[in-house]
């Protein structure tokens, strides 16, 4: 799966100023990504989302991002101008967020949003853009693309909205996709449909995918490799297929503490957090 390196992250740090001093949300995260599916798993406050945002260049302006290396396809993301960064974003790197309700523009039809996205990054005629938008909606398995094209985000269900979001993000043909909890707001059955679509598109287009989630089991069933984060640091990197043999007690604890159908455990094992994990 992992051919050439698409993204290289070395010692990434994100620091937020607060009233009580500086807080490091991400404290020296390193990993590299090829054309594969990489999962970043962690609980709230582990810095997983801030890692994704830092790569995407969406860190809040008051925070500071530093890294020994943060390179996408050989381009040093920290030294290029904001303008060049913007050109990359949405074109070669795309991001899907948790809730389509908040990430789609409520006063613009879905179709127009996809067309606009395409036309900001590529010089295409209106007719061709529309053509490609419709094809993209078809690709995310929306049954009646022409109808959905003219709908507003509030007129579609959560699952449909998330598919539209994926369509919008994929229409420019990005090479790297960052998905931050893309299915957490969806019902379980819909969740799997959306994941299936994402999986197929990523495989077909040979994209790199970073899948950020709190759900270790879901991530491990979807991704090739898993990075487990705790308190802003990577505690373990492991192949998804070898997750059962995870070494770090945090990873093992996370896997264990979820109730599973057919495995009666009363009480459930709980995580015994060790201060040295965060050290």
């Amino acid at each position: 799966m992992s051919g050439d390196t698409l993204l290289e992250v070395d010692d990434l740090r994100v620091t937020f100023p607060t009233r009580t001093g500086l807080v490091q949300a991400v404290r020296g995260v390193s990993f590299s990504l090829g054309r594969e599916r990489l999962g970043i798993v962690g609980e709230s406050g582990s810095g997983k989302s801030q890692t994704g945002r830092a790569i995407m260049g969406l860190t809040p302006p008051q925070a500071e991002v530093s890294a020994k290396k943060l390179a996408f396809d050989g381009i040093d993301l920290l030294s290029i101008s904001p303008r060049e960064r913007r050109a990359l974003r949405g074109n070669r790197i795309a991001m899907i967020l948790q809730d389509p309700k908040y990430s789609l523009d409520p006063v613009m039809t879905i179709g127009r949003q996809i067309v606009e996205t395409l036309r900001t990054h590529e010089k295409v005629s209106k007719a061709e853009a529309r053509e490609r938008a419709l094809a993209m909606l078809q690709a995310v398995q929306i049954r009646d693309p022409a109808r959905v094209f003219d709908l507003y985000p509030h007129e579609v269900s959560g699952g449909m909205g998330q598919r539209a979001m994926i369509a919008m993000m994929l229409v420019t043909g990005p090479e790297l996709m960052i998905a931050d909890e893309p299915t957490s707001a969806l019902d379980v059955t819909v969740q799997l449909d959306v994941l299936k679509i994402l999986d197929k598109l990523v495989a077909e287009r040979g994209m790199g995918l970073i899948f950020i989630s709190h759900d270790l089991r879901l991530v491990s069933s979807f991704c090739d490799r898993v990075v487990v984060m705790y308190a802003g640091k990577v505690v373990e990197q492991i192949k998804a297929s070898e997750l059962r043999d995870a070494q770090h007690p945090y990873t093992r604890g996370l896997l264990n503490c979820m109730p599973r159908i057919g495995f009666e455990r009363h009480p459930l094992p709980v995580l015994d957090r060790k201060p040295e994990w965060a050290a």
Partner: peptide, 15 residues
């Protein structure tokens, strides 16, 4: 809640 916290709360409820 996070998965690890979920386990604690579920245990508490059972108890």
């Amino acid at each position: 809640l996070d998965a690890s916290v979920q386990a604690e709360v579920l245990n508490l409820l059972e108890e």
